[in-house]
Amino acid sequence: MTDQPDLRAAVAAGVVGSEDSYRALLAAIVEVARSIFGAKASSILLLDEETDELVFEAVVGEGEETLLGTRFPAGKGISGWVLATRTPLVIEDVSNDPRFARDVAEDTGYVPSGLMAAPLLHDESALGVLSVLDRPEQSLFSLQEMELLGLFANQAAIAVDLLLKARTAERLLGAEGGDLEVVARLASAVDALEDSQREAGIRLLRELAAMLGSA
């Protein structure tokens, strides 16, 4: 068992590295979304199920420096509606609506006059919301843009799913007695075997994997 921390550290290093990659991917998605729509800002909000809040996970444009990590209740406002109904929505000219402002503006001082929002859906779950703020005012919205928004949201949902999995793995690795702990202990035990026993040990694990259905 003495070599277990090293093994866990090695796996953890891989997981920690991936979190940074996925965050960079989310940042790239909002950057491209903002650019393609010619918008002033774009963001990805993630649902924190424990606190029932939406958290800014990636922001580009207005509010970029202050918004990251900011939270607000997941049940209210336009993002809350998009999340709960799993339906994309486009709203123009929202600048003077005080209740709309609760959604974004209170935290930033930035009040958008238009908002496109789509849910981040993965399997059966709604993971968060992709928003694009303030498209150019002169252009009327089209169904083509709605489809494009859906495509970006789909891409963002895959990235968010990977990010969440990386975080879960990291948490499990840190938890004594967790699922990964068992796997890590097994790997340590095989590592510690003499060459003669090692072959039999690996064969045993292969049989186990086959029995578990992952041959």
Partner: peptide, 11 residues
């Protein structure tokens, strides 16, 4: 829309 406003929306 709420707040007595009128908005242009799509979806």
């Amino acid at each position: 829309w709420i707040g007595g406003r009128t908005l242009t929306v799509s979806g």
